[in-house]
Structure formats: structure tokens, C-alpha cells
Design a protein around this nucleic acid. Structure first.
Lengths: 265, 265
DNA sequence: CGAAATATTTAGTGTAGCCTAAATTATTGA
DNA sequence: TCAATAATTTAGGCTACACTAAATATTTCG
């Protein structure tokens, strides 16, 4: 072979893309996860929303965003919010996968009540190795959703992004299957467990009092009356065939260009 | 009630002793654990030994020791080493309990090979809640030793401190039960697994070549020849009655005043 | 015993993340 | 439209934990 011209810009070590996972710090993983979730909901992650989600001062978010942008995990237009890059999204989904598998394992295998698994997974998600996570997933038969019904991203970053209807929006007399609720409010979760309103369960909206009044439900065989705030947080799907637990294999995709999403104020 | 004089030094919040576990940082837990183990072996933890155990510079240890002493976890005589206080020992034993229960759980329930559990437990021990640890312990039937034979401290800080003989020190023809080996050397552990030399197994020392030469063993039904370095790391007990696995209930105690222990150089 | 070797501590730095207060930019509504 | 309000960033600090280099104490050994 003959000599080749060498691009001088290539003589420096050139920041080779690491083939191994770069091992992010705990705060970094938390920021990326929070930003992913905000971006999913609002199209963009606002500084104050991130601050609220992580319970830190807005100024701290600005500082972290600077670091994350320098490392290529986010793009940032000052005063305009943050968007994850591909690398950022990948990292966020990895953390979310760990979190949800941990939640599932803690609830299913170790018998944790479903209102406690979030807090526990929140800490373990930063410490568990990939091997541990995959062993847990295998022990569970590779679940596709966590105890609260949230979809578990695959190892290669695919997530079920289907949106669900809110229980609050059912028509009177309409029947549906409860599919999901946020894992972040233990009191709410305890109450839902009490009235047996959990993923996979059949619900019928029996009545809705006017002026945002209480909503009467049939849950399984029992009746419950709940407030509109609760009903807005519970997601449901039109009642499908039979099998109640894990979602069957269904269309799945990664959120690509999110541009042109609804902005929010 | 009448007016009282107020001690001005008491007007600041006064650093009330926390009744809940103070939640130590990860580095602090690591330092205390390392110091506990060094103190057990040598009576006192030398700065350079701590540095070696944690793979940090000696100067970093001095800095941390200052902080730990200020918080009451250790006492420090400059140039003379460190001793854990009661609080320090309690914290260290808590971390060690977590570590060993995690190792047991990972090996027994999740099928991790015994040479991998140390590294995994090393990270999880800082993140797992007490509740998780106790649920794991319960799932295992409250084991008293980990996969490498190390005794698991009880919740209230009791540990089995019995010393064991080294395999290397058996007399020729003597038979014993393998009881323990350090969890820190994966290669050694893989090799021991290969020759089936694991806790609970019967060993007989068949021959010892002179000048620190190789040692011939019968392990179960097979014969193996091992070096003296390996044989010095494996701990054994005079072969007892029958049951091979976990130690039965046996005298247990906390290391109290360790003063007057052998100093080491 | 005293010099060389070894262990330890001090001094001076650096980085990641967090904070508050003050400045700046964007948004809203009268 | 523009002033008030809200959101964001800048400026300046702080703490924990690490490092290197230099100073000091201890131990060992000729």
C-alpha cells in the first residue's frame, strides 16, 4: 500500500466513540431521564420543569445542561429549552429500562407493595449492572410493562409509545381496561390498590356528577366513587379480547424527530 | 413560666443527634468497611493500607480520616493509625451485612457465578434499602454465611469472629472442611470452582513438596495439586459431624476493645 | 546511634454538583 | 404596545472527595 495523506485534525486522539457504555454519574442519569420524560410530554424540557422534577434549583439545571451539552447528550437553545440528542435518548432509555425492570422484579419476586417499588428502583437503577438487570428480566420472563403499566424499553431502545385514554374521559356506561398509572405517588397507589384498580382490571364508568364532581365506577364486582383528579391520572384502553396482564407484542418505535410537537404554553 | 437565660451557643439549631440512620455517602461507607476489615486483621488501620484497599492516594485517606474523626466514626492518632468508634463499627457492620446478603442472593437466586457477586454487591450495598436487604435475607432463609463462607453480621451487629486454619497449615494426611475464601479475587475463585474446592467440601492434604512446593489435595473424589499461595488463602475447619452448608448457630460476638492486639511490623 | 528508607501529613489544586442573589430575556395582559 | 410578571441565566460560593508535590515523622538497619 502507498502512503496516504493524513488529515491533521485526525492526529489528536479524536475523541473516539466509546464502544463500552461511558458510565454516567447518578445525577447525570437522573437529569437525562427527567428530560426524556418531559420531552415526551411537552416536546421540550423546560429548565424549571426539570428543576421541579429533580427538586433542585433552576440555576443548577442551567449548569448541568451546559455540561450535558458539552458532552453531546442534549442540545440547548438558551431560554428555549433542551432536547435530547440520540446519545441522550439512548442513555435515558437505558435508565428507564433498568428502573422498570427493577420495579417489576421487586414487586413480583420480592413481594414489595407497588407503592414502594419506585423509590427503591430509583436508587438501584444507578448501581445495578447490565448483567443483573438482564438476569432479573429473564427471571420475570422478559416483561413488557412494569407494575404500574408503564412499557419497558427493549435493550436496543425501542419503546411502546402508544397513548392511552384517561379514565376521566370515558363516556357514561363505557367499559375499559385499566392499563397504567404514574409510579410516583405512593398515596395514590395505595388507594388504587385498596379499590383494586390496577393494570389489567376491567372498569366501567357508571356515572359522573356535574361540575367536575365525583365519578362512580364499577371495578371488577365492586363499585367505587372517585374524584376527577384521580380519574385523570388513571389510563385505560378500550376493553380488548381476554388476557389481562402483560401487553402482547405490539407496534413499538423510538421517538425520532419530535420537532413540530405541541408546544405548551 | 418565667423568662430564661438563653445560651447564645444554643440558638443555632444545635446539631441534634439523628435518630434515623444518618445515611452515609458511598465513599464514607467504603472507608469504614475497609477500616473495619483492616482493624480486624491488624488491630489498627494504617493510612497506606486503607489507601491500598480503596485504591486512592494516601493523602486522600488522611483527608477522609479527618472528616470521619470529626463525625465521631473513628479516632485518629496522627502517624499512628485509625480505630473505629462504636458508631464506626456499627456502620461498617451494616455495610458488610448488606454486602454479604447481596452476594448470597445474587448467587443463590439469580444464578450469578461466585466470582462475580463481589463486584456487583460492592455497588448495590450502597443503594439497597434495609427493607430490600431484609426481604432478600428472608427469601434465603436468613443465611449465616455468604457464598465464600464469610459470616453475615446480624441486624444488631453481631458477627461470628472465629478464626479458621489455613489449608496450607494442615498436617499431611489431615482431613478438614473447606469453610472460607476471600471474595476479592475472581481468578482464584474461578479456579477453586474448577477444582470444586468450595465451602462445605471435604479436603484432605495428601502431600506437600518441600521448599514451599506444590500441595496435593483430595477434594471430594478427585485429586488436585495446588500452590502454597492458593493453599494459604483457603480456610478450613476440622471436619465436623455431617451437615455441610451453612454454619449452625454458634457463639457469636462483637469485637469490643481490641486494644493490645498484635501490632504488625 | 544516626542515616536512609518508609509512612504520613500538609499545602495547594481541581471537578462535580449544588446553592442564593442578581441580571437578563421572554411572555402576558391591560 | 409596553409594563409587569415569569422564566432563565450569570455570578459568586460552598462541600465532598480526589490528586500531586513537598514537608515531617517514624522505623529500620548498617
Amino acid at each position: 500500500m502507498h502512503a496516504r495523506k493524513i488529515d491533521p485534525s485526525a492526529t489528536q486522539p479524536a475523541a473516539v466513540a466509546p464502544t463500552t457504555a461511558p458510565s454516567l454519574t447518578e445525577p447525570v442519569e437522573d437529569y437525562l431521564k427527567a428530560m426524556y420524560e418531559l420531552e415526551l410530554r411537552y416536546g421540550v424540557a423546560a429548565t424549571s420543569d426539570v428543576a421541579g422534577a429533580l427538586d433542585v434549583a433552576p440555576a443548577s439545571v442551567t449548569g448541568m445542561v451546559r455540561r450535558l451539552a458539552a458532552q453531546g447528550y442534549v442540545t440547548h437553545v438558551p431560554y428555549r429549552g433542551v432536547q435530547l440528542t440520540e446519545a441522550g435518548r439512548t442513555a435515558a432509555l437505558r435508565t428507564i429500562r433498568r428502573h422498570r425492570i427493577l420495579e417489576s422484579y421487586l414487586a413480583t419476586v420480592l413481594g414489595f407493595p407497588w407503592d414502594q417499588v419506585h423509590a427503591e428502583a430509583e436508587r438501584l437503577e444507578h448501581a445495578a449492572s447490565d448483567e443483573l438487570i438482564e438476569r432479573m428480566a429473564a427471571a420475570l420472563g422478559h416483561p413488557t410493562s412494569d407494575p404500574h403499566g408503564a412499557p419497558i424499553p427493549t435493550v436496543d431502545g425501542q419503546v411502546d409509545l402508544r397513548r392511552h385514554r384517561r379514565l376521566a374521559d370515558l363516556a357514561i356506561g363505557e367499559r375499559a381496561t385499566m392499563v397504567q398509572v404514574s409510579d410516583k405517588n405512593p398515596q395514590l397507589l395505595r388507594y388504587l390498590a385498596e379499590i383494586a384498580l390496577q393494570p389489567g382490571v376491567e372498569v366501567t364508568l357508571l356515572a359522573r356528577a356535574p361540575f367536575d364532581g365525583p365519578i362512580t365506577l364499577r371495578v371488577g364486582d365492586a363499585e367505587s366513587v372517585v374524584g376527577p383528579t384521580l380519574a385523570a391520572q388513571v389510563l385505560v384502553d378500550a376493553t380488548a379480547p381476554a388476557h389481562a396482564s402483560a401487553h402482547a407484542t405490539t407496534p413499538v418505535s423510538t421517538p425520532r424527530s419530535t420537532k413540530g410537537r405541541a408546544s405548551r404554553r
